[in-house]
Nucleic acid binder design. Structure first.
Length: 1041
RNA sequence: GGGCUUAUAGCUCAGUUGGUUAGAGCGCACGCCUGAUAAGCGUGAGGUCCCAGGUUCAAAUCCUGGUAAGCCCA
């Protein structure tokens, strides 16, 4: 006996019971251990931050990361799955700062505050909070059915992980792929720290800033100046160049005030005439490129010596526009990213006279110690006094402010360590070419373009909680030592090292050749850390050397689209730099999950349902299937909708479960045991569903091999429909009538085979339901879990194409028949004498073979195969373009209307003779598409090569039979109304106009269908119910026998 | 501003190498249901394939240029 299965099972409870079973029996561990010695299928898990709770995006990625490894496990591979945590970085530091504020009232903001609080205390605080949500993560991830090892997880803050990062860095160092440079970044002088671009975007304000237009006097032109405009006057003392656009038109105008000549963009002239109320007459025009190389006098002489190093000349920059200003841009390379790059290209050195608190330093002696913003007005005054100020105005604009302190940000060059990505660009592209991307365009276009335009990678951060850069700098700044392991550090410093965080190692100094080396202050970008994951999770090369090398690169990873610039990139850069290989061979990229209204998921707006609520309502299997059956698996956005879940539930989960419940119910009634050859039934329907199932297995296997997960669910929906709404519905009686035990056994064997193997095929996608079905049906035979089984293989010998085609034709006839009945208001309960079928060429025998099914489905007495259809239809013709087009080309222009104009008789002639002459061409039947058009006086339907007609003439006999069926229907409804069980026997009484004739013919049929042991005998009239049949009244009474 | 993606029925989406009358589900309308399932079954209506050009005998499909939305970068 199988365990009874209710069609109304609570799936959430069922899933939890299965989770308990997996945990108790260690099924996940067994699924890995069972494949010991088998070829590995290598999976890398991208580490999330545990500073927040998991959302749908994580659940989706987790589902993909579960389905694929489960599939390959069943295909015989050993798949190790370790969870990882991203522990370092700014998000953690910010969380810590917030926490310290809330819990201890400490308002630490910026470099000095943190250093005063103590980097050791701060880092340890970060360490203490970084894993605080891991328990919640584990609960949700497990509840989704994801199998992943949380115990042997990796953490980017583990000493072993950090040591491998050092090793990776040292490799790059030794390959000369690391250098120190500058980068212009948003900078908070209040916090004395650079901010990320992301942080800089967090607090924009509308403010008024001074907008000054300044004269830069040319050296070799008497009384001529170039005008440049800026909203940051404090950067003018650091000016080292002016930039123009080579293709921009410039004009030279006369300033009537002093007769001097001024140069500015033509497009900006009108603006300046307006604001200065001067006529500024044009005396000359210049192309931007003609101005390149012109020397000018520096505004101030603080950095006059830079003139010897290419400064104070006009250079070009692609960023110059004529939207505002003068079309000439003042360049202070320390304070603008575009300035920095343009000056670097022109060979100009950088000067930075502003300290970390935003104050001018000694070289700018006039303003030394003054905050830059405060200095603005003093600088303007100085320029005015010296006649260099052309115009002074005010600009309203949106400007970034520090999100922590609300002070204006400045842009400032800071020391930065880079990896030379540009130098290895070709190798990166070569690595990418070895990766299979789903969807393909991400790899061939998006990622390819990104690599192609890659700039050197800034790997250092001026923060605290991270893996320190293992670089020690000599006191005079002339020499660096890079350290690649703990052992090396211990050897160089003589100290014992247990923890690599900065508060443990920064005090260690290295003495070499009489010089003292101290560690530089920077820590790694956390992307460098996660990009080192393939090596660091194994503590490579300090441990697991052979194991790691044998299993690199990964077979598979799966992450979101945002990782194109994140993990996908850093993995690829490091693996290519180190080993000239990609870090992964296959990747599935998922898109963004949005709320139902198309907006971003937002906790505060509550525009999406809580994941745990969804899981409890629909089950994790349903959620998994929904997520996987959506555009999000092709890297497009998904609007999360509960309706979509209902659809999966109704379309796949519920019918599958009901089919299973149906099987168990009847199998138990007849004490069925699977025995013998389960696929040996000769029955048409059995062979059909078994054949269809092989195709499904073959298709799903193909999709899984290619990681095309989004193709899987539609395949299943279609099969479930075929299984329940055709196979089971058509086979129902075979399961409950045991007059032919062999026939019944075939039916049970078939359905048993389908369910067990379907459970196996679906197990990676719906691990819970499949486990439940498998465990009940297997009855202790075979492995204890479906996930320990091998994946089913499509058996080609069971595929019967002829059978499938026959069934498809029969289903088409039935569908068209139903459509005809509805269109002509002929209800199915009324039997009809005959259906005439004009089958496609040569398919007459098929219709004969399928006649029984057609008769029953359409309630007709006979199926008549017609060879000549012309009594039912008349013809029209269209050209078969696929055949004619390539052959006749342009002639189609005349042939097309000629063919469409052919009359019925002409087409009939074509069909008889096989060819026709038209417009000078000889055309055969294959060159045409013949349409059959129904004649309006007949009940005829036609569709492509198939035509059917219903004989609607109702004889007395047909009417009586129809009446009998109506009676059965009313009686069955009554049985339900009075609360009888399906197996209860009844005594029946029927009275009414003209029912006598019907009863005389069909009493036995009525009794059999309604389980009536007596008809119109004895006491059954007591409770007579009035009903109507075809406009006539009948009275029906029934009592339980 | 740049790169990529998307645009097909009221909604969510399929649509193969260019080929004829472009499909599904939901929703809607009508009908059906006691022997698994009302979270069911059947039938039907519903389309300017974003716009404009181009290539071609033939374009939802290929090309060019727009428009709109999304993601990433600046």
């Amino acid at each position: 006996m199988f365990e009874a299965v209710s069609p109304k099972t609570n799936f959430a409870e069922l899933e939890e019971a299965i989770l308990a079973f997996w945990a108790a029996e260690g099924i996940f561990e067994k699924s890995v251990a069972n494949r010991e010695g088998a070829p590995e299928y290598v999976f890398y898990d991208g580490p999330p931050f545990a500073t927040g709770l998991p959302h749908y995006g994580h659940l989706l990625a987790g589902t993909i990361k579960d389905i694929v490894p489960r599939y390959w496990t069943m295909q015989g591979r050993r798949v190790e799955r370790r969870f990882g945590w991203d522990c370092h970085g700014l998000p953690v530091e910010n969380e810590a700062l917030k926490d310290l504020q809330e819990k201890q009232g400490l308002s630490l903001s910026g470099k000095y505050d943190i250093e005063q609080y103590g980097v050791d205390k701060f880092n340890e605080y970060c360490r203490s909070i970084v894993l605080r949500y891991t328990k919640e993560w584990e609960i949700v991830v497990k509840r989704m059915g994801r199998w992943v090892d949380f115990e042997n997880n990796y953490r980017t803050m583990d000493p072993s992980f950090m040591e491998s990062i050092w090793w990776v860095f040292k490799q790059l160092w030794d390959k000369d792929l690391v250098y120190k440079g500058y980068r212009v970044m948003p900078f908070s002088w209040k916090l004395s720290t650079p901010l990320s671009n992301f942080e800089a975007k967090m607090n924009y304000k509308d403010v008024q800033d001074p907008a000054v237009t300044v004269r830069f006097r040319l050296v070799d032109r008497e009384n001529t100046a170039v005008l440049a405009w800026t909203t940051t006057p404090w950067t003018l003392p650091s000016n080292l160049a002016l930039a123009v656009g080579p293709d921009i038109q410039y004009v030279e105008v006369v300033d009537e005030e002093d007769g001097g000549h001024l140069i500015l963009a033509e497009a900006r002239l009108a603006h300046y005439r307006k604001v200065t109320k001067k006529s500024l007459e044009v005396v000359k025009t210049h192309e931007g490129r003609d101005l390149l190389g012109s020397k000018y006098q520096p505004l101030f002489d603080f950095f006059a010596e830079e003139g010897d190093y290419n400064a104070f000349q006009i250079i070009e920059s692609g960023h110059v526009t004529t939207k505002d200003g003068t079309g000439v841009v003042h360049m202070a390379p320390a304070f603008g990213e575009d300035d920095f790059h343009a000056c670097k290209a022109a060979g100009i050195r950088m000067v930075d006279p502003v300290d970390v608190e935003g104050k001018f330093t000694a070289p700018v002696s006039d303003f030394e110690g003054m905050n830059v913003k405060e200095a603005d007005r003093h600088i303007i005054r100085a320029l005015k006094d010296r006649g260099l100020l052309f115009h002074q105005g005010v600009l309203n604009h949106s400007y970034p402010f520090c999100w922590r302190t609300d002070t204006p940000l400045i842009y400032k060059a800071i020391d930065t360590w880079f990896v030379k990505v540009e130098a290895i660009k070709d190798r990166l592209l070569a690595s990418n070419a070895q990766i299979t991307w789903v969807p393909e365009a991400i790899g061939t276009r998006r990622f390819h373009n990104w690599l192609n335009e890659a700039r050197d990678w800034n790997i250092s951060r001026n923060r605290y909680w991270g893996t320190p850069l293992p670089v020690w700098e000599s006191e005079d700044g002339s020499d660096f030592i890079a350290v690649g392991s703990v052992e090396e550090l211990e050897r160089l410093t003589g100290a014992q090292v247990d923890d690599l965080h900065s508060h443990f190692i920064d005090k260690l100094t290295i003495e070499k050749d009489g010089k003292t080396y101290r560690r530089i202050p920077e820590v790694f970008d956390c992307w460098f850390e996660s990009g080192s994951m393939p090596y660091a999770q194994k503590h490579y090369p300090f441990e697991n050397k052979e194991q790691m090398e044998a299993n690199f690169p990964a077979d598979f990873i799966a992450e979101g689209l945002d990782q194109t610039r994140g993990w996908f990139y850093t993995l690829t850069v490091l693996s290519t730099a180190l080993f000239d290989k990609p870090a992964f061979k296959n990747v599935v990229v998922n898109g963004l999950i949005l709320a139902e209204d198309g907006k971003k998921l937002s906790k505060s707006k509550r525009n999406y349902p809580d994941p745990m609520l969804i899981i409890n309502n629909y089950g994790a299997d349903c959620l998994r299937s929904y997520l996987i059956n959506s555009p999000v698996v092709r890297a497009e956005p998904l609007k999360f909708s509960e309706k979509g879940l209902t659809q999966i539930y109704r379309g796949v989960v519920s019918p599958l479960w009901n089919a299973y419940s149906f099987f168990v119910t009847y199998a138990n009634l007849d004490d069925y045991q699977p025995e013998g050859d389960l696929t040996g039934s000769p029955h048409e329907l059995d062979r059909w569903i078994i054949s269809r199932f092989q195709s499904v297995v073959a298709d799903v296997t193909r999709h899984m091999e290619n990681n095309l997960l989004y193709n899987v669910v539609p395949e299943l929906e279609n099969f479930v429909d075929e299984l329940t709404n055709w196979y089971i519905r058509r086979s129902r009686r075979r399961f409950w009538r045991s007059d032919d035990p062999t026939e019944q056994r075939h039916a049970f064997n078939t359905l048993y085979y389908i369910l067990v193997n379907y459970a196996k095929a679906l197990a990676p996608l719906m691990p819970f339901l499949c486990e439940a079905i498998y465990r009940n049906l297997a009855m202790g035979q075979g492995p204890e879990s479906v996930h320990l089984c091998d994946y089913p293989v499509a058996d080609q010998s069971l595929i019967d194409t002829v059978n499938e085609e026959r069934m498809a034709l029969a289903r088409r006839v039935v569908e068209m028949g139903r459509s005809l009945r509805v269109a002509h208001d002929l209800k199915v309960r009324q039997p009809l004498a005959e259906i005439s079928v004009v089958p496609p060429q040569g398919e007459g025998a098929v219709i004969d073979a399928m006649a029984a099914i057609i008769k029953e489905e359409l309630n007709v007495r006979t199926v008549n195969v017609l060879e000549d259809e012309t009594t039912l239809v008349h013809y029209s013709a269209r050209p078969n373009l696929k055949a004619l087009g390539p052959r006749l080309g342009k002639s189609m222009k005349v042939l097309n209307p000629a063919i469409r104009g052919l009359e019925h008789a002409a087409i009939q002639g074509l069909l008889d003779r096989g060819s026709i002459e038209l417009e000078g061409h000889t055309l055969t039947v294959d060159d045409f598409l013949i349409d059959r058009n129904t004649r309006e006086d007949r009940v005829v339907a036609t569709e492509r090569d198939l035509t059917i007609a219903l004989d609607t003439h109702l004889t007395e006999s047909l009417l009586l039979e129809g009446e009998a069926r109506e009676l059965v229907n009313r009686i069955q409804n009554l049985r339900k109304e009075v609360g009888l069980n399906v197996e209860d026997r009844i005594k029946l009484a029927i009275r009414g106009e003209g029912v006598a004739g019907c009863l005389a013919q069909h009493a036995a049929y009525i009794q059999e269908e309604t389980l009536a042991v007596a008809l119109n005998e004895g006491d059954a009239t007591a409770e007579a119910h009035e009903r109507e049949i075809n406009g006539k009244k009948v009275w029906i009474g029934l009592v339980k026998a």
